[in-house]
Amino acid sequence: MAAEDRQGKGLAGGKQERVLRFTRGERFSHWVHAISFFLLLITGLGILSLWFRPVLVLFGGVQAARVIHRVVAVIFVVVVAAMFFIGDPRYHWEWLKSAFTLTKSDRQHVGAFSKEFFGGHGEYPPQGKFNGGEKINSLLTIFGSIFITLSGIIMWFRGSFPPGVVRWAYPVHDLSMFVMTAAVIGHMYLGLLHPDSRASIFGMLNGYVPVKFAKSHHAAWYNEVKGTENRFHL
């Protein structure tokens, strides 16, 4: 898949230079996580609350939804975890490492970011492949996924755990859900709706983001990778 194929698609018309941000494996993990997250969210909310219960008709009723929730949960955990070990997992580990490496420049980005979120101007130093805000989102997702998985396992196999443990799994499962749902709302806004940052969605569709976007949002990363695209495998 050459960058040329993508030019002029969707964005500001005209020819635009592109740079590869996400490899096929990264995109695959992202979308497996995203789609399974939403299936889990909808089926879970339907089980958890009468408000959302009617939605479960789409899944064939409550009992079918409970089964689907478990099947999708396995995909949510196993597929994404496996992507850290199969194919070319280098960038998965790179992302993980970067999420846990919060620098001063990340903190400055997070501070300035609230203005930008609402359409204002924020001043922050050049950001890496993942800026401060994205790292926060990554951390919420990582810890949310870990806690929702552990509590989910306890809830699924509740007969094998003491009641005192199972009782705590419910609030942990719920809290993780709330954290990740709040995060994904902001994440989707920035990826799809925010005028300055929504160009990033292409990084998750075909892998490439406009060079101009890369320069303005991830300057430090862009300077590192420009002219070295051969290091990517699509």
């Binding site: 500001a12 101007h121 001043e123 922050y124 799809l192 709706l193 406009p210 101009k212 303005s216």
Partner: peptide, 14 residues
Amino acid sequence: GEHHSPAGKAGKGG
């Protein structure tokens, strides 16, 4: 500006 993307296209996006 340093941090503005050129990407915004007219319209409601999404």
